[in-house]
C-alpha cells in the first residue's frame, strides 16, 4: 500500500498566535493511501496544524510540501491561484460542523455537484448520475437529491459533506473531528462508512480527533500532540497498546476507563 515517495511532507511547521504557540516545529511525512491520526486534548494545537496543512493559514516558520505527479511543491511558495487550484483538485477538507462545508441554500445534489462543476464538469446528465451514485455510497436515499440539506439530520449532513469532498476524487482528505457533535450510534455508522471509503478509494487522510476510538478504527499511524508539540508518534496499534510518553499513557488510560 505504501509507495516510494511521500505525498505530503511537513517540515518544522510552526504557527504562533500573538505570542501563544499554536503548533511548533512539526515535521512528518504522509505516504499515498496512508491514514494519519493527530490526537491530543483540545488546545493541543491539532486544528491549527490541520489548517496550515490544508492551505488555509500559512505557517510562521517551516514549509509544507505536496507531491503533484513527480514534482514536490511548497504549497505556500506557490501563487495563490495555483494553491487554490490544488486545494480544489488534490485534497479536500471535512469540517467538524457540516454547515461549514456545505451550502445550506443549495440542494443536496447541488452541493455534491458544485465540486464537479468547480473542476470543470459541464454535463448535467453525467453529473446527475455521479451525484446519485455518491448519495448511495454515503447511504443517503437518492430520492433526497433535490432536497435542501437543512431538512437533513446531523449525521446525514455530515455524510453529504463527505460525498461533496470525495466526489472530486482527491488524493488526500483532511478531517477535523469528523464525528464530533454526533450521537454515539450515528458516530459508529459514520466511522464504518469512512473506513470503507478510505480503503476502497485508496485515499490518504489526516484525521484530527480527541477520540482515541476514532483513531484506532481509522488510522494507520498516530501523532500525539501536547502544547503544540509532537510528543510521540508511531503505528496506531503500537501507540495505543504500548504508549511510552506519560501523557499518551494518560490519554489511553482515559479511553480505556471510559
Amino acid at each position: 500500500m505504501i509507495e516510494e515517495a511521500p505525498l505530503l511532507r511537513a517540515q518544522n511547521v510552526t504557527r504562533l498566535y500573538g505570542g501563544r504557540v499554536g503548533c511548533r516545529d512539526i515535521s512528518f511525512s504522509l505516504w499515498p493511501g496512508e491514514v494519519l491520526g493527530v490526537v491530543g486534548e483540545s488546545g493541543s494545537g491539532k486544528t491549527t496544524l490541520l489548517r496550515s496543512l490544508a492551505g488555509f493559514e500559512p505557517p510562521d516558520e517551516g514549509a509544507i510540501h505536496f507531491r503533484h505527479g513527480t514534482e514536490e511543491h511548497d504549497i505556500y511558495a506557490l501563487d495563490e491561484a495555483s494553491r487554490r487550484a490544488m486545494m480544489r483538485t488534490e485534497w479536500g477538507m471535512v469540517h467538524q460542523n457540516p454547515r461549514d462545508g456545505l451550502r445550506l441554500d443549495v440542494s443536496a445534489g447541488g452541493n455534491i455537484g458544485e465540486s464537479l462543476m468547480a473542476r470543470g464538469d459541464r454535463h448535467y446528465g453525467k453529473m446527475r448520475a455521479r451525484i446519485t451514485d455518491w448519495l448511495q455510497r454515503v447511504e443517503i436515499d437518492s430520492s433526497r437529491i433535490d432536497d435542501s440539506p437543512q431538512s437533513f439530520s446531523g449525521g446525514m449532513q455530515q455524510r453529504l459533506q463527505i460525498a461533496r469532498v470525495l466526489v472530486a476524487e482527491p488524493r488526500l482528505v483532511f478531517m477535523d473531528e469528523p464525528t464530533g457533535g454526533l450521537d454515539v450510534s450515528v458516530q459508529a455508522r459514520l466511522l464504518d462508512l469512512l473506513r470503507v471509503l478510505v480503503r476502497d478509494l485508496h485515499l490518504a487522510a489526516i484525521i484530527v480527533t480527541h477520540d482515541l476510538a476514532v483513531a484506532r478504527l481509522l488510522t494507520d499511524r498516530l501523532i500525539v500532540m501536547k502544547d503544540g508539540h509532537i510528543i510521540e508518534e508511531g503505528l496506531t496499534d503500537q501507540i495505543l497498546d504500548d504508549p511510552h510518553h506519560a501523557y499518551t499513557q494518560l490519554l489511553t488510560s482515559a479511553v480505556l476507563s471510559a
Partner: peptide, 14 residues
C-alpha cells in the same frame, strides 16, 4: 473559480 455560478444553472434544471 466559477463553480458557484454553474450551481445556479444546475439548481434550475434540477
Amino acid at each position: 473559480e466559477y463553480g458557484p455560478i454553474y450551481v445556479r444553472l444546475y439548481e434550475d434544471i434540477a
